[in-house]
């Protein structure tokens, strides 16, 4: 395995099964040369934090479309903090209204990608943050 490869966990928390976005982003990151681990559907915050630790990832991308982000994302942030994984880049994509973004960023999310964001923007953001961080 190429050790310089950026490792990204793509995760779908909550009960929502709409995985079109998560899978497109996962594939785009792979095509950009990153190592991607996709959790599959309906992962709890605990499962996602554990996977991040186990897989020793540089970044986590969370896809959520159900409107449960204000409940689920802060919990994932707390668990990552408890695991000492504050240096892991956390990004979120999905249906996130503007007014919820400040709260998510305060909880520890680096960036929120709303509907219409291009995969290139996401790839560039992760690469820049991980390699400069």
């Amino acid at each position: 395995m190429d050790n310089s490869k950026i490792r990204v966990l793509v995760a779908k928390p909550g009960l929502d099964g709409h995985d079109r976005g998560a899978k497109i982003v996962a594939r785009a990151l792979r095509d950009a040369g990153m190592e991607v681990i996709y959790t599959g559907l309906r992962q709890t915050a605990e499962q996602i934090a554990n996977a991040a630790v186990q897989e020793d990832v540089d970044a986590i991308g969370i896809s959520i479309l159900s409107g449960a982000h204000n409940t689920i994302i802060p919990r994932i942030c707390e668990l990552l903090h408890a695991e000492g994984m504050d240096d892991v880049l956390l990004v979120v994509g999905g249906i996130i209204p503007d007014e919820d973004i400040p709260g998510l960023k305060q909880a520890g999310v680096s960036e929120v990608f709303q509907p219409g964001a291009s995969t290139q923007t996401i790839v560039d953001f992760i690469r820049n943050k991980v390699t400069s961080g």
């Binding site: 909550g14 009960l15 929502d16 309906r42 709890t44 159900s66 409107g67 449960a68 982000h69 204000n70 409940t71 689920i72």
Partner: peptide, 22 residues
């Protein structure tokens, strides 16, 4: 809503944050 679609009652732990949303 998603808890109903997934066969969970509104007081199930996995329903948290999802009740009445979708």
């Amino acid at each position: 809503d998603l808890p109903t679609l997934m066969g969970y009652d509104s007081d199930h732990p996995l329903a948290e944050g999802e009740v009445g949303h979708c």
